[in-house]
Design a protein around this nucleic acid. Structure first.
Lengths: 123, 123
DNA sequence: CAGGATCCTTTACGATACTG
DNA sequence: CAGTATCGTAAAGGATCCTG
């Protein structure tokens, strides 16, 4: 019945929800966290390496997500002036600040994959 | 040039990538993490409370995401047999194991919201 | 090799009205 | 109140071909 307490809790909740929004805005889309996770483990990677490592992604989506991530300063893109063009991507310092978050995602998945198995892509 | 090393690293990468997939399968969709975050802060919440707390979500999506989360055992749904029906949602034990992950998401957003401001929902 | 352009399909998402 | 039903739009995603 303490309405002040409820109000206070609601304000706290909204503020934290904003944190979630800020993060998910940057990580929006199905593939960004996969790209970041790959770069976190592998260091520098080329376009084709990412395409082969991340199961299910296509060229178009990979290109788009890489664009988004570069615009937001999470990864860097470097062209090496070789005969057939070579491009390497890697995490920036800002991108590396996501290390803990990504590791949490990975570890939760590894720990609890047997508990909750349903995907929602079924008929 | 050490192909074994590269191969080994690639295997490690794929295994970790799988962890990401397991987690994102369960957290798929735009709103699940908002619902979980709200319940983490607020404890038990009713349908309308969630609808009012999570900015931008609609009834349809809220209902669907709550369904998904319940199916995967992350939240519980309890009907109180009151005259106008009352339903409360809360995190299950399994749902509470996401606490660290969600806190990482919240904290990263709070820390780095000024670094990367672009959203991708613009013309 | 690293992507852009194009076309097309599917899914996600949203607004509103309605029901037990 | 707690949802479902219905309809409609926008975005995601995929296949293929093309270019520096």
């Amino acid at each position: 019945m303490n309405k002040d307490k409820i109000q206070e809790q609601n304000t706290l909740c909204r503020s934290r929800i904003l944190g979630i929004k800020d993060t998910t805005d940057v990580l929006s889309g199905k593939w960004k966290i996969f790209i970041l996770g790959s770069l976190l483990v592998m260091g520098k990677m080329r376009f084709m390496e990412l395409l082969n490592t991340i199961d299910g992604i296509g060229r178009k989506m990979l290109a788009k997500e890489l664009d988004d991530l570069e615009i937001n300063g999470l990864i860097s893109r470097t062209e090496l002036k070789t005969k057939p063009l070579t491009v390497v991507y890697e995490l920036t310092e800002l991108g590396k600040t996501l290390k803990n978050l990504i590791n949490e995602v990975i570890e939760w998945g590894e720990k609890y994959r047997d508990h909750s198995l349903k995907q929602f892509h079924n008929p």
